[in-house]
Design a binder for these strands. Structure first.
Lengths: 244, 244
DNA sequence: TATCATAGTGTCTCAGTAACACTATGTCAA
DNA sequence: TTGACATAGTGTTACTGAGACACTATGATA
């Protein structure tokens, strides 16, 4: 005969430590553009497992400190870069029995897009070195665990987003010229974009505004723009292709 | 003085049960089309917590049986529907301290698109009832945990996919007429599509082939088509809008 | 003051969706 | 047997936004 128990009774006798459950963590690809190159942040692990290997920043959820996954990710981002606001996007969750020598594990992968200006990289007890590395098509990196796959998934997401959203605007400083913005898009896209098409698309979308200032160089000054902070990422009606 | 230990030593003394880690599970929205309506599969929970409430099918990763997250999801799908092949897509991972009364928990949400023909729903020890419920815009369901949010995220993903991919073809039986396919797209999209545009788009994409058979009704017979099994979901160059 | 380099524009082409009127072909009832 | 009907399927034009590319604009510099 089965005894019927209430939810309270069930919960009071519930002990998570009795179950064989997977380890769950968060990893992130933090992207920026420096010197006309797309960069991602890597850390050299100072702790086991994979000690001494390069990996994506990340780590475990602190169930006492973090209220949500986003809290965990924002905490990790701030720990390494000091940045507290940026575009943050969940990309994909990886989970299997093999990816971590500690056993069955799940990691929720995020990508962050940040502007490189005023960034001070921070090493801490979990990482002896923190560095920007250049991301290119079809390159082979030997990262810890399955972080190659994770980085590739994030890079792929970023590349697809540059085709139909204005999102990569978050990689630039607060003010920028349209040429600088176009260059950034081209770097991610991996091909050049026709100037007029790009400008028309962008200006029609009404997502940038002139600041009134100019970037002065050794030629015609360029208007400086800033992103309109609508919060929403603009979706273009057609994807941009690039060609040359 | 710190003793330097090897990775082997580290792993041999590592015990996951010592840590405060979140519960990790998988939940899924299984979509199909029945009687010209989009349906999702719900189960009535027969176990605590949220006993007696309707919820999305899902459950814990069995770290001994499942090699990967996909294995877990496929296992859950087969347990409820008997279906073993279908379009399966990871949608979003939800994780926070509040969503489950057992404590900090993470769930990886998937959506599955299946054809409704020859489906026999299966109740088991974790669910006393299994039912298809109709999905509509802006409806309010009272599901267990945060399953409302999860279902909405999956529905949103499905709606966005119908605009620029051929993916919803997976909701139909093996053979179908173009009108039936268009109806399905319209149901998900929530608005009607211009017939010629739809047909041109679809036929140009080269993703369906005529079977040679016809659907006989009380009027002109319609050609039956089947999906070309290229495996890849076709991306249309522009999104479909719908209007009337 | 002419040259250069980069900023920014005018305008045509092209591809794919939207609109809509049209034709085609089966069933069914008189 | 035939004509109304309902749904299948087509022809054709308009519209929209990206691509191409030649053009003009404007500051620094020699």
């Amino acid at each position: 005969m089965n005894k019927v128990i209430t939810e309270e009774e069930f919960l009071s006798s519930y002990n998570i430590h009795e179950f064989d459950i997977p380890l769950t963590s968060v990893d992130m690809a933090i992207f920026t553009v420096i010197d006309q190159q797309l960069k991602a942040l890597l850390v050299k692990r100072s702790q086991h497992p994979a000690k001494g290997e390069w990996a994506l920043p990340g780590g475990f959820i602190n169930i006492h400190e973090d209220k949500s996954l986003d809290d965990t990710v924002r905490r990790k981002l701030a720990e390494k870069t000091g940045v507290d606001t940026s575009h943050l996007e969940q990309v994909q969750t990886f989970g299997n029995a093999m990816r971590d020598p500690r056993g069955w594990s799940v990691t929720i992968a995020y990508m962050a897009l940040i502007s490189a200006d005023n960034i001070q990289l921070i090493a801490d007890e979990s990482s002896e070195q923190v560095e920007w590395i250049t991301i290119e098509n079809n390159q082979h990196l030997s990262l810890a665990f399955d972080h190659n796959d994770i980085l590739n998934a994030c890079y792929k997401r970023l590349k697809s987003k540059v085709q139909y959203t204005s999102l990569p605007i978050n990689l630039l400083p607060a003010t920028f010229t349209l040429t600088e913005l176009q260059k950034t898009f081209e770097i991610i896209l991996g091909s050049s974009i026709e100037k007029k098409s790009f400008r028309k698309r962008l200006l029609d979308a009404d997502i940038v505004v002139e600041t009134g200032d100019f970037r002065i160089g050794s030629n015609r000054p360029a208007k400086l723009y800033k992103a309109k902070k609508s919060g929403k990422e603009h979706l273009f009606p057609r994807s941009i292709q690039g060609s040359k």
